[in-house]
Design a protein around this nucleic acid. Structure first.
Length: 293
DNA sequence: GGTAGACCTGGACGC
DNA sequence: GCGTCCAGGTCTACC
């Protein structure tokens, strides 16, 4: 079956897909032939579906691998709206970005939306998996989590959904450490899964919270395994752009852009984006860096 | 609040 | 093939 979902204009599915590396982490997949994406998702009913998303006039078309009940259809629509930021308004950002040549592409490509997972739990776990490691290892760890704990897609059991907090909470640190190869991150992921599964931690509520960004950042920093970089990354995914996810790559970019390759620290990175105010994180993310490493 | 060392994996490199 | 070094953020202990 197919759902048609409107998007606040301007909207570009290609820009969302290319917004960062999430598209290369399972259970996302690119659908290069048709310029879309697919995502294996376990609905709250327990059903596992393949959601194929394509650009359509005024928004996106979502093809599902099986027929959905009315409740499942509504849940799917809500998830896709969140994942693609269909209702996000970037007109204020475009108004300031158009004045900066390094951001000219943002307006012409309708960029700004960042690809999100269906649940904040999945995004927090994936963010933890990006820390202190190389991208190839992040992909491997994420793939291991899904292959070992994710529910299979009935029509193609090789493809699986991201594991639920309940499923991961029923695992143990040794398995996550040694078999899933999460290393020292294993207790962080297990602890997070247990907190979410027991409802001691309601991550989904953070999607709608009106907490000031500083308070939200403090909240995220209380999660074991989430430090300054991970918190800033998650704030970006939550639509809060007044913090910059500063990692070692940020130092290289800023060093090359403004310091002729000389070593820089967090202070220099922040200094170059401070005047962008509430948009500084997005400006950093969308900046037209010529440095490729 | 700031700093040092440990954590863990895998790629690069030298032998 | 083996051993060593290094990169990559966060945690804890300590000052």
């Amino acid at each position: 079956m197919q759902l048609l979902l409107p998007a606040r204009q301007p909207f570009s599915l290609t820009s969302v897909i290319n917004s960062h590396g999430w598209i290369r982490l399972l259970p996302f997949n690119e659908e290069p032939d048709q310029g879309g994406l697919s995502y294996i998702h376990q609905l709250s009913s327990g059903s596992v579906v393949n959601l194929q998303v394509y650009q359509a006039p005024g928004g996106v078309a979502v093809n599902t691998s099986s027929n959905l009940t009315a409740a499942e259809e509504q849940e799917t629509a809500n998830k896709i709206k969140w994942m693609l930021g269909l209702e996000q308004d970037f007109s204020d950002f475009y108004a300031v970005a158009v004045q900066e040549p390094k951001l000219a592409h943002v307006v012409s490509k309708a960029s700004g939306r960042l690809l999100r997972s269906a649940t904040l739990f999945e995004d927090v776990v994936k963010t933890i998996l990006t820390t202190n490691t190389l991208w190839a290892a992040t992909k491997r760890m994420c793939g291991n989590l899904i292959s070992q704990f994710g529910e299979p897609l009935p029509v193609d059991p090789e493809r699986r959904a991201f594991p639920t907090p309940e499923r991961l909470a029923s695992s143990n640190e040794s398995t996550l450490r040694m078999e899933t190869r999460l290393g020292y991150r294993a207790p962080y992921v297990l602890n997070l899964a247990k907190q979410v599964a027991s409802e001691a931690l309601d991550l989904e509520a953070l999607k709608e919270t009106d907490l000031p960004t500083a308070e939200l950042r403090k909240f995220l920093l209380k999660i074991k395994g989430v430090g300054p970089y991970a918190a800033a990354n998650l704030l970006m995914l939550l639509g809060r752009y007044d913090d910059i996810p500063i990692d070692s790559w940020a130092f290289k970019l800023v060093s090359h852009e403004w310091y002729n390759g000389e070593p820089v620290g967090p202070g220099e990175v922040k200094a170059h984006f401070e005047h962008w105010g509430k948009w500084k994180g997005l400006v950093y993310w969308m900046w037209d860096w010529s440095y490729q490493g």
